[in-house]
Design a protein around this nucleic acid. Structure first.
Lengths: 104, 104
DNA sequence: TAAGACTTGTCATTTTTTGACAAATCTATA
DNA sequence: TATAGATTTGTCAAAAAATGACAAGTCTTA
């Protein structure tokens, strides 16, 4: 089952037997705020992905994919976007890509 | 071909033969900022969707779908989210829906 | 070239997000 | 049960991002 990014961090943290305080310190982050992140009450700041990857020896690209899919999943959820509408959104993304080409 | 939300507004505006200034006034908006919206340099504020629907006699739900798919499409584009990753994002949205049920 | 339409740049204001800290609750164990 | 460490929650100031407003520019066309 897929998890949220916050749950994913908690999983990594527990597997590595770190406390909130310990991981928060490694991430230059307040432990109270890391708690909120793990519980989905705040977002993880994208700028910290490289640090997170390094701490847990993860591939940064894959980690970023975890992050991106979480962010988009969140937006899909919050906007009640159906599969059908998501298909439209994908087509619009594709359209934006064609726009970009024209600019070049 | 799908368009951005900004282009869609411009289309509506031209079809109804309104100038930027005229439509902006109806939307309680600065014409310069409406120009930026149409050109994709700013976002249309979701709060104005009801007003926009009324002006052009559009179904608000459909208009909101246009808006939502534009927003998600933009995020897909900006994050370079592939179709494969989008599938994952959809699963994560589904997971969030199951979380919500548990809260109840 | 004059007027209206549109675009671009800038900046103050508003809104949202983040960082930080205090205090509360929870959990395990001496 | 008392204590310590771990976690959660609430709050608020600071930082960052979005928005509103206005001036000045370019473009179009009559």
């Amino acid at each position: 089952m897929k998890t949220t990014f916050g749950e994913y961090i908690r999983l990594l943290r527990n597997k590595n037997e770190l406390t909130l305080t310990q991981l928060a310190a490694k991430l230059n982050l307040d432990s109270a705020n890391l708690s909120k992140i793990e519980n989905g009450k705040r977002d993880f700041d994208e700028k910290r992905l490289p640090k997170l990857a390094k701490i847990f020896k993860l591939d940064l690209t894959e980690l970023r994919n975890e992050y991106v899919t979480d962010q988009i999943g969140k937006q899909i959820y919050e906007t009640n976007c159906t599969k059908q509408l998501l298909q439209v959104a994908e087509e619009k993304a594709e359209y934006r890509r064609t726009l970009k080409e024209k600019v070049i």
